[in-house]
Amino acid sequence: MTFTAEQDALRDSVRKLLDREADPWPELCEQIGVAALAVPERFGGLGAGTTELQVVAEELGRVLADVPFLGSAVLAVHAVLAASNDEACDRLLPRLAEGVVGAVAWTDAEGRWDAPACRVADSAVEGEAHYVLHGDEAEILLVVADGSLYEVTDARRERTAAMDETRRLARVRFDSAPARLIGPVDLGALRDVACAVLAAEQAGAAARAFELTVEYSKQRHQFGRPIGGFQALKHRMADLHVLVETARSAAYAAPESSRLAAAAKVHCSEALATVAGEMIQLHGGIAITWEHPAHRYFKRAHGAAHLFGSPADHLARVRPPLS
């Protein structure tokens, strides 16, 4: 993978800001403009591509940052753009570019991507959407129903408990909520962008989990020597290194096609789960204490694997149909 000087500078800026800010979203928006990356310049954005979104997501994944980047700067922005409604773009995209939080609701209680949970009748939305990223705090609430994107202001929102406390999810209930039609949206294309960016986030989390595990293996001694010096652990570390590197390669190849986006979702989910599991095992008892971050990477691995569809769902898109 080869990155441009601008992409490397973006990565460096995001990493430095995340190192010093406890609540990074305001500064990420004001100083770096991450919320404006995917917004075209004519709507007040930076007009960047998917690779730039992935660079930011990879860095956010490394520290498990709880920010509305994926749900707002990626999903909400791309949903509005996909509807091809200039009036809606003029009205919503400048606000999203400034860092106003947006959310897209569509998923049913089973977490399925291809079966929107809501429907429209007489210009009003009915139904209950689950796993809405930052849905409880979004100022711009969008919902996919009957193949189109709608803007809704009146909805009952509730933050839902999740094993991964670094991922903010909500349940949103629409009771005949007045809806403003934005336009038709290709949910499959939106899914592919989301999977590509999420895969980069997973690759970043896997890389950091691996780094922490290597560091610990050099510090922990057993039988008078660091455990990282034992041959069996060297082989395990080598296998994890390959997983991390292939996950990163798969993630950055994901935007090339729908099939590669599905493959990246499958491989990056499995890679992060494997690395996080090994992190827990090699750290021993300390890994499941609140003071150590190992359990947080393990929980992120589980939650991210099922976001936007489970690996099994996406594997079916990768495999060729049986003749």
Score class of each variant (00 low, 15 high):
Ala5Val: 08
Glu6Arg: 13
Gln7His: 07
Gln7Cys: 08
Ala9Ser: 15
Ser13Ala: 15
Arg15Gln: 09
Asp19Pro: 00
Glu21Gln: 15
Pro24Cys: 07
Trp25Tyr: 12
Glu27Arg: 14
Leu28Ser: 06
Val34Arg: 01
Gly45Thr: 03
Gly45Glu: 03
Gly45Pro: 02
Leu46Ala: 14
Thr51Val: 15
Leu53Pro: 09
Gln54Glu: 05
Val56Glu: 03
Glu58Val: 00
Glu58Lys: 10
Leu60Gln: 07
Val63Pro: 00
Val63Asp: 02
Asp66Ile: 00
Leu75Asp: 04
Leu75Met: 06
Ala83His: 03
Ser84Pro: 00
Asn85His: 10
Glu87Gly: 08
Ala88Gln: 06
Leu93Cys: 06
Leu93Phe: 06
Glu98Thr: 07
Glu98Trp: 00
Gly102Val: 05
Thr107Arg: 10
Ala109Ser: 08
Trp113Leu: 06
Ala117Ile: 01
Cys118Tyr: 04
Val120Ile: 14
Ala121Ser: 11
Ser123Met: 13
His130Pro: 00
His130Ile: 01
Leu133Phe: 03
Leu133Ile: 14
His134Ile: 05
His134Lys: 10
Gly135Tyr: 08
Asp136His: 13
Leu149Arg: 00
Leu149Gly: 01
Val152Leu: 07
Ala162Ser: 15
Met163Leu: 11
Asp164Glu: 12
Arg167Asp: 03
Arg168Asp: 13
Arg173Phe: 01
Ala177His: 05
Ala177Val: 05
Pro178Thr: 05
Leu181Ala: 10
Gly188Thr: 13
Val193His: 07
Val197His: 06
Glu201Gly: 02
Ala203Glu: 03
Ala205Lys: 09
Arg208Gln: 14
Glu215His: 04
Ser217Gln: 05
His221Ile: 04
Gly228Arg: 08
Ala232Trp: 08
Lys234Tyr: 04
His241Thr: 02
His241Ala: 12
Leu243Asn: 07
Ser249Leu: 13
Ser257Asp: 08
Val266Trp: 09
Ala271His: 09
Leu272Thr: 05
Thr274Phe: 07
Glu278Gln: 12
Ile280Ser: 07
Ile286Arg: 14
His295Trp: 14
Ala301Glu: 02
His302Met: 10
Leu307Val: 15
Leu307Tyr: 10
Ser310Asp: 15
His314Glu: 06
Leu315Tyr: 12
Pro320Ile: 07
Pro320Asn: 06
Ser323Glu: 15
Ser323His: 11
Ser323Thr: 04
